[in-house]
Amino acid sequence: MSTRSELVPRFSSAQRLVHWAVGLSFTLLLLTGLAFSYPALFWLTHLLGGGTSAMVLHPWVGVVFSAAMGATFVMWVRDMRLGAADRRWLRAIQAYARHDTGHVPPAGKYNGGQKLFFWAQTLLALVFLVSGLALWFPGAIAAVVPAASTLLASMRLLHYLATLAGGLLLTLHVYLGLFAFPGTARGMVDGKVSRAWAALHHPAWRPDTDPVTTTRDAERR
């Protein structure tokens, strides 16, 4: 019988690298994007060297974000299929938020909320990519589309709405991982979580037989 403070691997090093590529690029994109949307936040463009520089670099950071999101999708999609158990978990989400553990159906490696988060961010990444490409090359759009102004204005609206949704998701993600459930963030730093954490949040997960983390990280444990 293992002790509750013993650490078990949860994320592979590749998963952690990709997670931080997404996280850091999206944070930069969100802050500079808000700078372009809100005059009072225009000073945030200095994160990327000032107005013009931020305007030039924002889409390139977007390229990094899109690539990292592509890798995220490939790495995680098999674990993210929503099933009946996830729907039961989602119905009990208020109990989870209240820490009323007794009324939360046992989640596997990922709970219904995390799976929903994955699909929401995948959809948002697609919206960002399509609308972002259009806004990056307005001249090319104008050359082929007759009503380019209307199209580009709609793309800006879409890009903005996706920013709002993405900003909310990031807030939720950071709050849950960093503040609400201590011990979670560590999974994305050295890749490990405690058995107590796993038993509380993902009781149906079997870390000792998890194919993602047991292959290479097991012997290092």
Partner: peptide
């Protein structure tokens, strides 16, 4: 508000039989 009212939940503080 969630942090200040419901607060964080540390896994190690939750008794094992409550899982």
């Amino acid at each position: 508000v969630h942090y200040l009212t419901i607060g964080p939940q540390t896994a190690e503080d939750v008794p094992a039989d409550e899982h």
